[in-house]
């Protein structure tokens, strides 16, 4: 019950709204943990080049597979590179690529979903069947094909990931639009003769924005996992650039005697994914969209 809503409140600035949402998110333990992890990773991504103790690509055969010590906190890998340096730098590419990838996914998935939900009829049928067809293709196969044809540059990875992770958002945005579309204020706007663009922009987006943002945040964590899988398979970041997926892949054969070289990137990757997940959940709860009662499509 939202009894507090009945009380008069003044119109708030966007900044006040955002900060209120963040405070509500942080007031829940899970939200606080999630936000802290996420903020930690983002800050680390910004400052890591300046605080890294060693050069990430400096190979030193004399220091191969050293156990963690005061000098090399997380030990060294099979080429004698410092694991700590590589771990704190290893999230940068993944975070950047998947962040922009998620934005693209949100934009095209959200807009297409809203459009399909609004116009309905045959257009909706055809577009949704195409989306379904794409959903049935294992994304990793398609990604591998794209990457091997076009290379692994950022300009290829961002749109490709954005495309594959946007498909699911189409469905969510379309369902959220269907909830709104039956309301009389849309009927009223139609009867007044507003254009489809105006109805989408003024009437629908403010009402479905929250649901789509939450979905986008969830997709971000999935995309991160997906991107790391690509790196793991050797199709993401190319060496010697440090990347968690790549590091795990390189060190996995040495796990039995040099556990440190694989544990650090694993902790880095999973903590970031958990952080994003918890944040997205807290975000949904702060907005009043409870994911526990609604199954994601």
């Amino acid at each position: 019950m939202k009894l507090d809503n009945i009380y008069q409140e003044e119109k708030k600035s966007n900044f006040a709204k955002v900060s209120e949402i963040i405070i509500t998110m942080a007031s829940r333990p899970s939200g606080f943990i999630g936000l802290s992890i996420l903020v930690f990773h983002v800050i680390l991504a910004f400052i890591s080049p300046y605080i890294a103790p060693y050069d990430f690509k400096a190979i030193n055969p004399t220091l191969m597979l050293q156990a963690p010590s005061a000098e090399y906190w997380f030990g060294t890998d099979d080429l004698g590179r410092d694991v700590f340096t590589r771990t704190i730098l290893g999230g940068r590419t993944a975070l950047t690529i998947t962040f922009f990838g998620s934005l693209i996914a949100l934009l095209w998935g959200g807009l297409l979903g809203i459009f399909c939900g609004l116009v309905g009829g045959k257009t909706d049928d055809i577009v949704m069947r195409i989306v379904d067809a794409f959903l049935s293709i294992p994304w990793i196969l398609a990604m591998l094909l794209i990457v091997s044809l076009l290379g692994t540059s950022t300009e290829v990875l961002i749109p490709a990931l954005g495309f594959f992770y946007g498909k699911g958002i189409v469905r969510v945005a379309r369902a959220a639009t269907h909830d709104v579309i039956a309301k009389d204020f849309i009927v009223s706007a139609r009867a007044r003769g507003h254009s489809n663009f105006s109805i989408i922009w003024n009437e629908i987006i403010p009402n479905v924005r929250d649901a789509i943002l939450v979905e986008g945040a969830m997709r971000w964590s999935w995309m991160l996992l997906g991107f790391s899988s690509l790196s793991f398979l050797g199709f993401g970041v190319s060496p010697p650039t440090p990347d968690w997926g790549l590091m795990i892949s390189n060190a996995r054969g040495l796990m039995s005697f040099a556990y440190w070289s694989v544990i650090a990137p694993i902790v880095g990757l999973s903590s970031l994914i958990i952080g994003i997940n918890l944040t997205a959940d807290a975000f949904a709860k702060a907005l009043g969209i409870d994911r526990s009662t609604k199954a994601p499509v």
Binding site: K11, K183, D184, F185, V187, S188, N202, E203, P206, N207
Partner: peptide, 8 residues
């Protein structure tokens, strides 16, 4: 239902 909840 006839007034958009996100509009003033």
């Amino acid at each position: 239902e006839s007034l958009n909840p996100n509009h003033t």
